[in-house]
Nucleic acid binder design. Structure first.
Length: 579
RNA sequence: GCCCUCGUAGCUCAGGGGAUAGAGCGUCGGCCUCCGGAGCCGUAGGCGCAGGUUCGAAUCCUGCCGAGGGCGCCA
């Protein structure tokens, strides 16, 4: 309950209840940040409207209760009935001191613990991870960190594309090349080459095509030898994926693998249960369900095809099996799908069918955490200069390379090993932050210059602010933990502004999770870093002649650094101590 | 044709129904006796268009324009 806006909202609710006689929990005091004061409350306008009274009088009466005087130095009614609130510095300082001694920095636990399945990343076996996997992986990873931080139970699921017809051609190609040679190729070169060669053979040879088709049948019927080859492809692919995950520092591991193949045995059960409930319909040779409200081009009901006309299962069947598994076996009550926006229609149909079948019912919720594309500077899908999709590993190489060069240039006295390490943190952080800092539903333009800039809303700027604070403590030779019990004095406006910003970490984290939108946390951290640099510019910490305020300002520095570091950590970004 | 998402400053992006719509870059102008100038302070410039709901709309609703995406057996 660190956020003073949150605290004052509760006080105002009581004040308005006293004045109007309405139940407190039915009142929204509408507390907002303000540039005219520390905060403004606009609730009087709506209440007055509701009661047919004068809004200024309602506001004045609420002020007259005196309830606000405890935490506010000035409370003014302005305009049509706004209440402008200015917090007492002592009030803010006390709240801040409380947050400073809290390992969670004042962030409340979730009111209700939920079991959340987060479905994200999902690369395809035998294909390189590319820039298209960046957002799902970044957003998913950050949501997991945020959910855990506020106390939810998280179940990570990497729904890799490890099943389907393409495995016929892949396995036949593997056998043509020879198992040993194929493994060698897969481990040293990129996965795309292997896939392309298999695909070219499939297109070019009827004989190969027949073999590939036969191989699919064997795979699906569980032929042990075929499964062995399949396993080999999956394992080799996972080595590549885990390499990327490790560089990105995401939480996914092999323990979180729940590929399409994992649901294979459940698919007949999905069919059986849908049939049992009378939802399954035969249409044009396929077995389908018609969810309400979905129509095709001709305006006719649009089916979700659970099993196609040749008896095969598509991804609709797998996705339905997923829901059953996540709800009934894992007992999840929130299912997050971090999946691109184009899948919205498909997912909505799957959710609709799952609801019809009763598999998805309150309090269980399924949410499509949709996101837009990564664009090039031509505003089209981000591609390499040769027009190919950009491999994630190449992207990370370039980011680290560019960042390391910048670090080297600015720190020529730093040991090369540390330059490389800091360059890695800055480069990877820059990519991740660029991806997370725009509203996920929108497309964003990928721009090396901007994301690696030390100015603006970027990871390097935040990392720099953090490193600078670490430097202050090194220079002061003061142990960071030693100032945490200090109740800071907030005499200067920049000190007060910084305190106010720090205290909003709590509500920011919850707000970020309410919308599943990490960019809200990014915006907050940027504003916090700006508040800090303004403070640091105006309020000397270690200078001669400022001994009296030194401890107090060091305390502000410490909690700022910890908030920045924790915030970045929740985004999956490292904060070096020097850079 | 129908449906979904998006449209905010020259560029890239924030804006939880509330007062005068913010930031970064770029522009222009200040601050180097500067605890890290990888910084700080200031300046000019904008809600695609038209209606509606509301005491109050960038925000909610409708229509139009523009961009992207989706619309039965690939995922």
């Amino acid at each position: 309950m660190a956020d003073p806006l949150f605290t004052i909202a509760a006080t105002l609710r009581a004040a308005f209840a006293k004045v109007t006689g309405l139940p407190a929990d039915s009142i929204d005091p509408v507390v907002r940040p303000s540039d005219r004061a520390d905060a403004q409350a606009n609730g009087a306008l709506a209440l007055a409207q509701q009661l047919g009274k004068n809004p200024r009088e309602v506001a004045a009466a609420a002020v007259a209760t005196g309830l606000l005087a405890e935490s506010c130095s000035t409370v003014e009614v302005a305009g049509p009935g706004f209440i402008n609130l200015t917090f007492k510095p002592e009030f803010l300082a006390a709240q801040l001191a409380e947050a400073a001694t809290d390992p969670r920095l004042g962030v409340r636990s979730a009111a209700q613990q939920r079991t959340v399945v987060i479905d994200y990343s999902h690369p395809n076996v035998a294909k390189e991870m590319h820039v298209g996997h960046l957002r799902t992986t970044m957003i998913g990873d950050s949501l997991v960190r945020l959910l855990r931080f506020v106390g939810h139970r998280t179940i990570l699921e990497n729904h890799i594309g490890d099943w389907g017809r393409q495995f016929g051609m892949l396995i036949e190609h593997l056998l043509d090349v020879g198992e040993t040679e194929a493994v060698h190729q897969l481990s040293v070169s990129d996965l795309n080459t292997f896939y392309r060669e298999a695909s070219e053979k499939f297109e070019g040879s009827e004989e190969f095509k027949d073999r590939a088709r036969q191989r699919v049948v064997e795979l699906q019927s569980g032929d042990p030898e075929t499964l062995g080859f399949w396993r080999l492809l999956v394992d080799e692919s996972m080595r590549h994926f885990n390499g990327v995950y490790s560089r990105l520092g995401v939480l996914l591991s092999n323990d979180d693998l729940m590929g399409e193949s994992a649901y294979n045995d459940m698919l007949p059960i999905v069919i059986a249960r849908l049939r049992e409930q009378g939802l399954l319909v035969e249409s044009q040779g396929a077995e389908v369900v018609f969810p309400e409200g979905f129509i095709n081009r001709e305006g006719e009901p649009l089916p979700l095809i659970v099993r196609n006309s040749v008896g095969g299962f598509g991804y609709a069947a797998t996705d339905l099996a997923c829901i059953i598994d996540r709800v009934e076996r894992l007992h999840a009550d929130l299912l997050l799908y971090v999946v691109g926006a184009p899948q919205a229609h498909h997912l909505n149909m799957v959710f609709a069918v799952a609801r019809m079948a009763g598999w998805l019912a309150p309090p269980v919720e399924a949410v499509h955490v949709a996101f837009g594309n990564v664009l090039g500077d031509d505003r089209k899908m981000f591609k390499s200069r040769s027009g190919e999709t950009v491999k994630l590993s190449d992207l990370l190489d370039e980011a680290v390379e560019r960042a390391t060069a910048a670090v080297r240039e600015k720190n020529d006295e730093m040991p090369p090993a540390e330059q490389a390490e800091v360059g890695r943190m800055v480069g990877i952080g820059a990519i991740k932050y660029a991806d997370l800092s725009t509203d996920r539903i929108k497309d964003y333009v990928f721009d090396w210059e901007r994301m690696l800039s030390f100015d603006g809303n970027t990871a390097p700027y935040l990392q720099y602010a953090h490193a600078r604070i670490c430097s202050i403590f090194r220079r002061a030779q003061v142990d960071r933990a030693s100032v945490r019990a200090v109740v800071p004095s907030l005499a200067e406006p920049q000190e007060k502004a910084l305190a106010l910003a720090l205290l909003q970490f709590d509500s920011t984290v919850h707000d970020t999770l309410d919308k599943f939108s990490p960019h809200r946390l990014c915006t907050y951290l940027f504003e916090l870093a700006q508040a800090f640099t303004s403070f640091y510019e105006a309020c000397p910490v270690l200078k001669e002649g400022y001994e009296a305020t030194r401890e107090s300002r060091l305390a502000l520095c410490d909690i700022t650094a910890r908030t920045l570091s924790k915030g970045l950590e929740l985004l999956g970004i490292e904060a070096p101590e020097r850079m």
